[in-house]
C-alpha cells in the first residue's frame, strides 16, 4: 500500500517508532480543540447553539464556522478570529513529534518538504483523472464529499490517490451502489468497492449499527448507506456530466485510501 499519510511515511523511513507516533497522536488529541469548544469558552456560543449547529451539520456539508455565521449566532469577524486561534493552536503530527523531540528540526523540515512533494504529485495525478480543481465537476465533488464524510462517519481520514485499474477494482469483492441526483436533472451513479481490510475498518466505525442478524456486513452496509445519503445531499448542487473523464470515456475509476486500507470508486456521470 502506498504511504499516503505522514505517520506511515515516517515509520517506513525508520525516522520514528510506533510508540513515538502513538505519543504524538495523544499529544494532538489533547492539544487540538474543536471550534465549538473554543467558541463556548470565548463566550461566543452557548452549549445549545453548539448542539444546534452540530445537528445542522449532519444534514449539510457545511463546516461548523459557516453554519454558525449563517445561523446568525456569531459575526463573520468573530468567527474569523476564532478560526485563526484554532489554526494557530492546532498541532500537526510533525509538530507534535518535533515537540516531543522524536524528530530534530532538520529532520522535521526535510521530511515535510519531501512529504509535501509527494502530496503535490498525488494532486497532479488526481487532476489528470478528474480535471482541474475549482470547476465544480460532479465526480470531484463526490470525491471531496467522501473525503470529508469518512472522518465524520468512520472516524478515520480518507484520501483519493489516483487512477485505479479495472482488474484491481474486480479484486475488491464487496461493493455498494448508490446514485446522486444532480442539478438540472442529471444523475451520478457510483459504487464503492471494498476489500476485506477496508470492510473491517468500516465495520469498526464508532457509529456502525451492528445488526445481530446481519453481522459485520450489515454494519458496513449501514455505515456506507449513511455516507452515501450525506454525499447525496452535498452533490445536489453539482452540475451533471461536466467531468472531463466522464465525457471522454464514461466511468471514472479511482483509488481511495485510509491509513489501514484502500478502496475503489467507480463513478458514471449521466448528463441532462
Amino acid at each position: 500500500m502506498r504511504r499516503l499519510f505522514l505517520g506511515h511515511y515516517l515509520l517506513k523511513q525508520g525516522l520514528v517508532t510506533q510508540g513515538q507516533l502513538d505519543q504524538a497522536v495523544a499529544l494532538q488529541m489533547e492539544a487540538n480543540r474543536r471550534l465549538g469548544d473554543l467558541a463556548e469558552e470565548a463566550g461566543l456560543l452557548t452549549p445549545d447553539q453548539v448542539r444546534s449547529i452540530l445537528a445542522a451539520q449532519r444534514a449539510a456539508d457545511l463546516n461548523f464556522g459557516e453554519l454558525a455565521v449563517a445561523e446568525g449566532f456569531v459575526t463573520r469577524a468573530d468567527m474569523d478570529d476564532l478560526l485563526f486561534r484554532q489554526h494557530v493552536h492546532q498541532v500537526h503530527l510533525g509538530e507534535a513529534l518535533l515537540t516531543q523531540r522524536a524528530l530534530t528540526m532538520e529532520q522535521f523540515s526535510l521530511v515535510l518538504e519531501e512529504y509535501s512533494r509527494q502530496e503535490e504529485a498525488r494532486r497532479k495525478e488526481l487532476d489528470a483523472v478528474l480535471g482541474p480543481r475549482g470547476e465544480g465537476r460532479a465526480v470531484r465533488r463526490l470525491v471531496e464529499a467522501l473525503e470529508r464524510a469518512f472522518p465524520r462517519f468512520v472516524g478515520c481520514p480518507l484520501k483519493a490517490l489516483g487512477a485505479l485499474g479495472r482488474d484491481e477494482l474486480a479484486g475488491m469483492r464487496y461493493s455498494y451502489d448508490s446514485l446522486a441526483p444532480l442539478k438540472e436533472g442529471g444523475v451520478l451513479r457510483y459504487s464503492l468497492h471494498l476489500g476485506e481490510r477496508m470492510q473491517a475498518v468500516v465495520a469498526e466505525a464508532p457509529g456502525a449499527a451492528r445488526m445481530v442478524c446481519a453481522g459485520p456486513e450489515g454494519a458496513v452496509r449501514s455505515v456506507l448507506a449513511t455516507i452515501c445519503a450525506h454525499v447525496g445531499l452535498v452533490l445536489s448542487g453539482a452540475a451533471p456530466g461536466a467531468d472531463r473523464a466522464g465525457e471522454a470515456r464514461g466511468d471514472v475509476l479511482l483509488r481511495l485510501g485510509c491509513p489501514e486500507a484502500e478502496m475503489g470508486l467507480c463513478a458514471s456521470p449521466e448528463g441532462r
Binding site: V88, E95, L98, M105, F108, S109, L112, E113, S116
Partner: peptide, 9 residues
C-alpha cells in the same frame, strides 16, 4: 517553510 510555520505559530 515548514520550520518557519512552526516558529511563527
Amino acid at each position: 517553510l515548514f520550520s518557519a510555520e512552526f516558529e511563527f505559530k
